[in-house]
Design a protein around this nucleic acid. Structure first.
Length: 835
DNA sequence: AGGGCCCCCATTTTT
DNA sequence: TGGGGGCCCT
């Protein structure tokens, strides 16, 4: 591959956009009649639409990429093609994704296609790209290059303090609500001032909110910090306020690509818009001559605006609740007149049955461009439906089915279970543990949100950005040094009166006006911070060695007494905290290996911007459990979509929100389209929530699936009829796969989907599966079982042990039950007795 | 300053 | 049902 690639253009050579006029679209296929293109091999195996998406050249291109239509492949080949044909230098390409994981994948795949010549591209998230820009330009507007980034926890802590100071809670402003409103406004590029102009300022609650908002912004600036929303918003502000700065980037980025465009919010949209505007200043601008010209991009005079490629699927827009604006993609052609649109509808992931179900469901959303996924791999298995009596019954069915699949040769890590809300995972876990189904919950781990990790990072921030008072306040009494709120305020007042920073105040402990014991504690902290700073940011001006961050962190944790305090504690959790901190130290080492030039600031940036959700596919050998939102972008051979009930999906809260039910339908659609070969839709008739059992109704989405695609192992009708209720109404008719639904009609008996009753139902009597799972996991101690033993199980009745595998607490009995078939049971906790 | 108790509340989440 | 936050008591 690499050999075939064109040599990277030499930096000295003239910066030419090689293949003809880049405004003249060269459409379609494989360059008819003009001999082999240098990117021919990149088009191999692509369908005509995909080829077009790779080869089209013009100012604006929208690739409407249905689920599983090979979007990533197209995008990476498009980038590779631009480089291979020498239409662009790597440095002229900016590719934006939403997650670091997606960015990493893309970088890797482009690298595979064209090798080293891919270096120098910006492939990053919106936030990382903005950080890079802001670091270079921060000095333009009152920040320094060593600014830090507040995550949502940091910003909530700050807002909480401000809400308290302004007594805003008296007006019903909770920290969470305030944070939400501020974030929303920032996503709309509003600031406190502009909001105040449009708000009803005679309302005291509004006035207080505006006060808190502007105080928050002041504090951020004072701390030399940006929150997540600011990273985008302030970059837009920068571009608008300083056109000559924006021009630098407009000249540099000739080709901009944005993935998951349907998820962009207004600020992100505006950012892209700024970057694709014509260069405003004429030739040789003073900015470039002032020694600030950091790019190797050639300074051609007034080049064309950058060409923009966006990829997305409005049917997969599921993040409106956090500001994503579907109009950005829906109105792309209006925003960029003359834009080319390419539709990718051929699906390379799922069977036709699954796609037909997905198409049918999503077609109930009005106001959408029609798009139908299709495949040539054939119908495949029917979709399987199951209705449990309870969530545990539902979970048991899933566990059984997973075992059946596994025995049939499906890897556990090719199986996923989705749910709408996190709380639904509990019942699944309980059953999976008992059934010895190996599983992993995805997206739940929040390593960087643990208190001890945040503390450790606050120590680092305190050194990297001494202006960040929040970080100092966080660590000043951790471990306990006897410095309480009163002392902190005393220090703050002293700092203010002396016109110095909080950090510098710590160096004058004796002058602050606190007792000798506290003075000593402050001085000791000051000394530790100074010592660590000398390691990580040597005052002598020399470069810190790559290991400096790791060393500095260890020094901080040791000499601050943080480690000691945890080790001395008798709280058993503190042991785990030490381990977590060790893990963090390991992360810094890893960082040093990967980034020999990496500074403390680089490390902190990476940590702030890179979540641990990025190692999503670490589930080797386990079934993956996750929310539907987390599932986006992933695919599995077998998918279980659980809790398909009214009030869950669509979620009850969505009913009141404009566009809510439609977004829920898209969420359901996303879930369906994750499945390659097998799809299971399951629900329960009763569900225990908030401590009480409620009766659940089948989701309206179920009946949007044509009945011939769905084979019920146990339909809602079966379950109800055994209870002797509703059976008539249920069996009376089957609503057609139908049209004209989607009004906010309430469900009722007439919406309960019907079922083809399959005789092979796994259920026996109601009592067998009634909600019998005890809250506590039992413990059989070291119950010994051997092949041939007869046992009795609370749910499954009697059976014979076929085999015992595993060791210790993880011993698993493979039992053939007389009534319930083969099961795997974790001997330690299964509700079994030896007979 | 810290521990314990009580009350309230309860989608989805990346950066 | 369960977790987190706030308040009160020691």
């Amino acid at each position: 591959m690499t050999d075939a690639s064109a040599p990277a253009p030499r930096a000295a050579s003239a910066p030419v956009l090689v293949v003809g006029d880049d405004r003249a679209p060269r459409t379609g296929g494989a360059a008819p009649g003009s001999g082999p293109r240098p990117d021919d091999d990149l088009l191999e195996g692509l369908n005509p639409q995909q080829r077009e998406a790779v080869t089209y050249r013009g100012p604006a291109l929208l690739i409407v990429a249905g689920a599983g239509s090979g979007k990533t492949s197209v995008l990476t080949r498009r980038v590779a093609s631009l480089l291979r044909t020498r239409e662009a230098w790597p440095s002229q390409i900016l590719a934006i994704t939403f997650t670091n994981k997606a960015a990493g994948e893309m970088r890797e795949r482009v690298g595979q296609l064209i090798g080293e010549s891919a270096r120098g591209m910006w492939i990053s998230t919106f936030h990382s790209a903005c950080v890079r820009i802001l670091r270079r330009e921060a000095a333009q507007f009152g920040f320094t290059t060593s600014f830090t980034i507040y995550d949502s926890g940091d910003s909530r802590a700050l807002i909480k303090r401000l809400v308290k100071e302004h007594e805003a809670d008296a007006y019903g402003l909770t920290p969470a609500a305030t944070q939400g409103r501020i974030s929303k406004l920032k996503n709309e590029l509003a600031d406190a001032e502009s909001y105040a102009r449009s708000a009803n300022m005679s309302d005291p609650a509004e006035r207080v909110f505006v006060e808190v908002f502007s105080a928050y912004q002041r504090e951020l600036q004072r701390a030399n910090a940006f929150d997540f929303d600011d990273l985008i918003g302030q970059t837009v502000f920068l571009f608008r306020a300083f056109p000559h700065v924006a021009d630098v980037y407009r000249r540099r980025f000739r080709h901009i690509m944005v993935d998951e465009y349907q998820d962009t919010n207004h600020a992100q949209y505006a950012l892209i818009h700024e970057l694709t505007r014509p260069v405003s200043s004429g030739g040789g601008d003073e900015y470039a001559d002032s020694g600030m010209m950091i790019f190797d991009a050639p300074a051609a005079d007034a080049p064309e605006p950058a060409s923009l490629t966006v990829v997305g699927d409005s049917d997969q827009s599921i993040y409106a609740f956090r500001g994503a604006d579907i109009r950005n993609i829906a109105e792309f052609e209006k925003d960029y007149p003359g834009a080319k649109v390419v539709l990718l509808e051929q699906n390379y992931r799922s069977t036709q049955n699954i796609l037909s179900a997905a198409n049918a469901v999503i077609s109930h959303n009005f106001d959408r461009k029609d798009k139908k996924l299709w495949t040539d791999v054939g119908a495949g298995e029917p979709i399987v439906g199951f209705t449990g009596y309870s969530q545990h019954d539902e979970a048991q069915f899933i566990a059984d089915e997973i075992e059946t699949l596994h025995r049939a040769g499906v890897d556990y890590n090719q199986i996923a279970v989705f749910y709408r809300t996190n709380s639904q995972s509990r019942a699944l876990e309980e059953i999976f543990i008992r059934a010895a189904v190996p599983y992993k919950i995805m997206g739940g781990t929040k390593f960087y949100e643990r208190a001890e990790i945040k503390d450790a990072l606050a120590y680092l921030v305190a050194i990297a950005n001494p202006a960040d008072e929040m970080a100092l306040r966080r660590i000043i009494n951790r471990p306990r040094r006897g410095i309480g709120d009163v002392t902190i305020e005393t220090i703050a007042r002293y700092a203010q009166s002396e016109q110095i920073t909080f950090r510098d105040a710590l160096a004058n402990a004796s002058a602050i006006g606190v007792g000798p014991k506290i003075q000593q504690a402050i001085s000791r902290l000051d000394a530790v911070l100074a010592e660590a700073a000398e390691i990580m940011l040597p005052a002598s001006g020399e470069l810190a060695p790559p290991t400096a961050v790791a060393e500095g962190l260890q020094l901080l944790l040791n000499k601050s007494g943080y480690y000691d305090a945890l080790r001395a504690s008798k709280d058993p959790q503190d042991e785990a905290r030490v381990e977590n901190l060790d893990e963090l130290v390991a992360v810094t080492r890893e960082f040093a290996r990967n980034n020999p030039e990496g500074t403390l600031l680089d490390f902190l940036t990476e940590v702030a911007l890179v979540s641990d959700a990025d190692d999503l596919e670490d589930a080797s050998g386990s079934v993956s459990l996750m929310t539907l939102h987390t599932a986006k972008g992933l695919e599995y051979d077998a998918v279980f979509l659980t809790g398909v009930e009214e009030d869950l999906i669509p979620h009850r809260i969505s009913a009141g929100e404009p566009g809510g039910p439609q977004e829920e339908r898209r969420l359901f659609y996303v879930g369906i389209t994750r499945a390659r070969k097998r799809l299971y839709l399951s629900l329960a008739m009763t569900r225990a929530q908030f401590g009480e059992v409620t009766v659940a109704m089948p989701s309206r989405f179920l009946q949007e699936i044509p009945s011939d695609l769905l084979e019920w192992r146990q339909s809602p009708g079966d379950v109800n009829s055994r209870r002797g209720t509703q059976s008539r109404a249920l069996n009376a008719r089957r609503p057609g796969g139908g049209s004209g639904f989607g009004t906010g009609k309430r469900y009722g008996d007439d919406l309960v989907p019907l079922a083809k009753r399959s005789p092979s139902g796994s259920g026996g009597s109601i009592d067998k599966f009634a909600n019998r799972i005890p809250a506590k996991v039992r413990d059989n101690g070291d119950l010994e079982l051997a092949q041939g033993d007869r046992i009795r199980h609370d749910d499954f009745g009697e059976g014979r042990v076929d085999a015992v595998t595993g060791e210790g607490a993880k011993r698993v009995a493979h039992v053939r039950f007389d009534g319930a078939g083969m099961k795997k049971l974790l001997i330690k906790i299964a509700p079994i007795t030896k007979l």
